[in-house]
Design a binder for these strands. Sequence first.
DNA 1: ATCGTTCTAGAATAATTATTCTAGACGGAT
DNA 2: ATCCGTCTAGAATAATTATTCTAGAACGAT
Lengths: 197, 197
Amino acid sequence: MARPKFADADFLDAALAIAAERGPLAVTIGSITERLKAPVGSFYHRFASRDVLLGELWLRTVLEFQQGISAALDAGDGLGAALHTPAWVRGHLDEACLLLLYHRDDFVQGGWPSSLRDGVAAQTARMEGGFARFARLVFGRSGRDELRRAQFLLAEMPVGAVRQHLLRREPPPPIVDELIRITYRAVVDDYHASRSR
Amino acid sequence: MARPKFADADFLDAALAIAAERGPLAVTIGSITERLKAPVGSFYHRFASRDVLLGELWLRTVLEFQQGISAALDAGDGLGAALHTPAWVRGHLDEACLLLLYHRDDFVQGGWPSSLRDGVAAQTARMEGGFARFARLVFGRSGRDELRRAQFLLAEMPVGAVRQHLLRREPPPPIVDELIRITYRAVVDDYHASRSR
DNA sequence: ATCGTTCTAGAATAATTATTCTAGACGGAT
DNA sequence: ATCCGTCTAGAATAATTATTCTAGAACGAT
């Protein structure tokens, strides 16, 4: 037996597959090591605890997801940012199940490990920053009402539209993009119409 | 000590409170009996298992929620059906957390108890029937596209709009109803516009 | 008053999991 | 050739939970 029979990413990937199939609760040290045919010692050699593993998995996934939205906002494409959700889901079914079907806190059993606190806080900040950027881009300012609409158009509504398909583990059909487009236009138009009243 | 020191509903209510506060996972026989100061024997005297208790809780809650939507549809009020979600949430914060923040299967650990299978199947049928009724009411027919839009307007979108407020356990503000109204009108109008093209 | 059913009461049991611990293998540096 | 740090290996430990079991109390019917 040589040195590296397994890699850190192997454990993360196994956890991802299990979480996507049977939910975060089914991710146990036992189910991971069984799937990988690795001894539990090898697991604990790399990760301090189950919470650290699952926390890292969630973080790595959410950061990847957010990047696409950031890119669309950088390009000044508000609608593209809203449509990023169905697009990303199509290319990352497992990751999407993880991210969009569960809460952050369904993963860690105890609180968040202190080693990940900063990462989580940074993630939250980046997300709120994204809403604010979107609000300024599309509405011209980022007050309470604008931020609320941004969150609806960028997160709540697209995730809702995609959810049932994730539950069936199937890629969202084109009608989903259509619904997002319709809603996007309506909320943006309504905003500007109400401003000029 | 007399006969009925506790009622069945006491256990269900305790479970509801715990689930709303700390999630369905925190609902253990221990946490229930501790909150109620009841012995575990009294619990098992009434419920065959934890899964039966939580299954019944979910079922009783979802049926109550659905009634309001059915009533609106009976009255021919499609928009009212869509707005039922925020309205109901305001009057039933705990129940709403239970229903809208988690999946059905987050409650039962094993499969659904056979005693509840029929109830769950009936619930699903009623829900799908509701979508079909809505589709016929608002779109005039209930084909694939119409059903998809019905589900979006009646379930996915309103639930999405309400979710962040539930996470903070606060009643959804008026802007939520406004967003639902805007989206409702846009999706309905788009449908009829696309038909006449 | 006695009996049986319905409950209360909580200790005992079992199963599942995370985590820790002890042993030993490999391969490069000395 | 020996030694050491990095890993593999999996048994042992501990904690948490659901569930079962045994005892006994209260009330209504007889």
